[in-house]
Structures are given as C-alpha cells and as structure tokens.
Nucleic acid binder design. Structure first.
Lengths: 158, 158
DNA sequence: TGAATATTGACAACTAGTTTCCAGTAAAGG
DNA sequence: CCTTTACTGGAAACTAGTTGTCAATATTCA
C-alpha cells in the first residue's frame, strides 16, 4: 500500500499511517459496539477509568487515567452524570472538587460493555497469532517510548 | 502496564489501547513538527493527498485520499486556499466542483514538511529493529483487515 | 501564620472531524 | 429528450477533544 525501499525510517512512516488507520477503525467499531447502551467510545472510556480504579475519582484523576485534559474529561462527566451513569459525592480532600462514583446503572452498563468487548475481541483474534500480537504490542510500546523524546524543531518560526 | 493472563483476546485489547496511546502521541508530535510552517497534522495530510497524486484533485477525491468525509476535507480546503497553499482551477468535468492544485507556496511547504518528517523518522528509529517494525506493520495491517468484519450487535437497541 | 503557588470547576473559543439537509449540477436509462 | 438518480458545495448542529482565562480553593514553605 506504500513505497518500496523499506528503510527503517520508511517502515516507521508506514507504521505511523497504519496506526492512524487502525485507530480510526477502532473508534468506529467501538462506537458501534456500545451504541445500544447509550455509550460512545469516549463515554465508555470514562466509565472504565472509574470502574478499573475500583473507587471514586475526581475529575482531574479521571482525566489523567483517560489521557486527556481535565476540561475534556469534565465535559464527559457532566453529561454522564446527567444520564445517570455517575453520581457525585463530596470530596473530603477538596470542597469544590467532588468525587465521581458509578451508579447502579453505570456499573451495570459498564459490565455489559465489557461482555460485548470480550466477545468482540475473541471473535477478532481467530486469524491472528499470539506471538504476532505480543511482538506488535511490544513494538508499539517501544515506539511510544521513543515518541517521548523531544522533536527536532528545525522548522520552527525562525 | 496492563493485565497478566495473556490470552489472545487480552493481548488484542492491550494492543488496541497501545494504538490509542501511540495515535495521540503521533498527532501531537506531528503538530509540533510542522507548526513553524503554518501547518497542522490535518493540513499537512491534505497537502500530501494532492502532492502524492501529482495532479489536481477535486474535494471529494481529496477526502477519499485522506480517509475522511467530503465535508471534512472541504473545510480544510477552504482554509488552506485562504492561506495560499491551494489554488482552485475550473473542473472541465463539473461546473460547480473545482479542482485544487498546490500553489508554489503549497509545494514548497509540503517539501519542507517532508524533509522534517524524514529527519524525524530517522532520529526515532535508532532504537528500533527493522524486523520488529516490519512485523508490527504486518500485524497492524492484519488487525485492520479483521476490523472490516461486521460487529456482533447483541447490545443494539432491540 | 501568612503569602506565594498549585489545583480546580466553569466558561469560552478553537481544531478536526461527523451527520443531516438543501439546492444546483451531472450522468444514466427509459 | 427528459426523468430519475447520483454527485457536489454550503451550511448547521453535533461529538470529542484542545488551549486559555477567571475566580475560588488547597498546599507549600519561609
């Protein structure tokens, strides 16, 4: 699907494009998977942050778990609270910053989503080899590591 | 960073999360890389669609090349034209649907971005093995293939 | 203790994409 | 031909995130 001379840099570029494509598909399929639960991929992820922490979290904590900004997480939380998935509880550590807990509905819905995700993942891996998945995961993690290095800013407004 | 029992389905789930993380980083770093050129990742991608086609394209053609909707591409094109990167030319095949060509500035800027991207990719691959990149690319492509299969819609509004 | 500093929620404006609708244009089939 | 269908740009409303500002609350530390 791309160029022929497979230098390492070219391969990395191709890998980047593959990440973009797969990312898009995953969000699309994730949305489809949970649309009957009044969820989207983003809303699901917010439920997951609290469910996996197994305790109530403040908005900034949820944001950090989701890898997005405080303000972005807050927007989702406000909607999810309105929809009955989260309930606020007073935060002993901070007057103005409540803690968010899953409601019954939130717990139940997240559990349903987990069941769907597990079934979906199982159906997908039929054609994939365990070792390939392992090494791909390792390589992506290595790429993620490398991406923490600062960008050479030659092109900056000089 | 995640759970221990490494079943294939669990590995795939972890791989999905890795794709999300790497995708976010790539967009962030891509934006930094070209910010001195009055570009963003999205604007860069639009220039690339026309540059790589080596001919003028209509808005729907550019959208398809970018993997986004016609309307999304049109928004970028309108801004990029205002900023002098694209110029419209009449489309002999359609009165109302002009064709977009890179201006001098557009060509020059895309060339600069390519230089930056190549240098960046080269600097990143130092710690990565060629074989790992190859197999990760293949696996991601395989995952992308599998993702074209329809989702089991058990959770849908039945 | 009290002053500087960091964190927080609310709000606004922005990027980047989506879906939906409209009206004009092109293409295809009878 | 001319009617139906497909394609196109424009605009609006939406999702999902960002940055930035403000005022209030916490924290740190001299």
């Amino acid at each position: 699907m791309t160029s022929h001379p497979q230098s390492k840099a070219t391969l990395l570029t191709d890998l980047m494009l593959a990440v973009f494509r797969v990312n898009g598909r995953l969000l699309e399929k994730g949305d489809q998977l949970v649309e009957g639960l009044n969820l989207t991929s983003a809303r699901w992820q917010a439920l997951g942050a609290v469910a996996l922490a197994e305790k109530s979290l403040s908005a900034p904590q949820i944001a950090e778990a989701m890898g997005i900004t405080r303000q972005g997480a807050q927007k989702q939380l406000n909607k999810l609270e309105q929809d009955g998935f989260f309930a606020q509880a007073p935060n002993p550590r901070h007057l103005r910053s409540p803690v968010y807990a899953l409601t019954e509905l939130g717990e139940r819905t997240f559990a349903k989503a987990m069941v769907l995700e597990t079934a979906w993942a199982k159906s997908l891996v039929a054609d994939l080899a365990l070792q390939d998945l392992k090494s791909a995961l390792q390589t992506l993690n290595a790429v993620h590591e490398v991406l923490n290095a600062p960008v050479p800013i030659k092109g900056a407004k000089s």
